[in-house]
Design a binder for these strands. Structure first.
Lengths: 157, 157
DNA sequence: GTTGACAGTTCCAAAAAAGAACTGACTTAT
DNA sequence: ATAAGTCAGTTCTTTTTTGGAACTGTCAAC
């Protein structure tokens, strides 16, 4: 499987991974949600090489996750900000944060807490079913082929 | 930043990414949730090189995300199954799936549908606040330093 | 006793990333 | 008017990681 063919796979995970599925990209997105916007700021925070940072930002921009917004002319300087499509990645990042908080926090405890403006509480993210609003447990979810499923010959057992 | 120092970062995203933050690992986990368990099955489905697959499975096992369960002796053969820690990644995978469904689905529509056993409905995953149960929107969440936060000198503005 | 499944390992070539310096268009300080 | 600094990259070379394919070893089935 080649990475540039991944987005053609009939799998939403593969398609998403083709956009955000590498280490640096996830860290860049984390910083985007923490309101980091400028090339130099990403570079300083992450320690990523400038070459890779430029490539990742370009890819995310082309994928419609980030957009470049000019904040000055002459020389044109832009910030990278999340689009609506990018903001929709919030559940993914929150899921990652929460897993890290639960399973990878050191003895010092979790590094960041999340306060929900709507209710004012410190909270955790919980995945629930859109229909019954009960928490979605892995073993309670069964998959069925959808309209864009792979041809049956390849669906396997 | 080196990848083997990533897990020492005071950031839950960085720590999580050090475990699951690469393309193959995410695809392997997807297959785990689809009940793929054996080396050859992963290899056939993913087209990953055997070398990398062995390395990724080993890493996930060492991280406590998968465990090896013998299903026969002589020769000892094992399956890789998700631990409780691994099952806790379900929200992350579901978040990725849902984003792909929304933003990367082709004209054919989403490849897989999810049925919630508890209510019987086809559903989407929704991230909600653990306290007020309202959907968590990116702009409604503010972060605060927690007990394991970085030293203030590096916290930045 | 030959074939085939399984779960890897080993080898080499090719691709990607790290690391550091360089470019170029401007701003601000001297 | 020159010098130094900022921002957003690009261009190099070296190192690391992957890809691709074949090889190993243990057993079961034919």
């Amino acid at each position: 499987m080649k990475w540039d063919t991944l987005e053609d796979e009939p799998c939403s995970v593969a398609r998403t991974v083709s956009v955000i599925g590498d280490r640096w990209t996830l860290l860049i997105l984390r910083d985007c949600f923490l309101k980091v916007r400028r090339f130099e700021a990403f570079q300083a925070r992450l320690g990523i090489t400038r070459h890779l940072l430029a490539a990742r930002l370009k890819k995310l921009t082309e994928a419609g996750v980030l957009k470049k917004v000019a904040y000055q002319q002459r020389p044109t300087r832009h910030e990278y900000v999340l689009t609506d499509k990018g903001l929709d990645l919030h559940p993914v990042i929150m899921g990652i944060v929460h897993w890290g908080d639960m399973h990878m926090a050191g003895t010092a405890g979790r590094p960041l807490l999340h306060r929900h403006r709507a209710c004012g509480c410190l909270c955790d993210p919980v995945m629930v079913c859109s229909e019954c609003r009960e928490p979605l447990k892995a073993r309670d979810v069964v998959v069925e082929p959808g309209p864009g499923a792979a041809v049956p010959a390849r669906a396997g057992s």
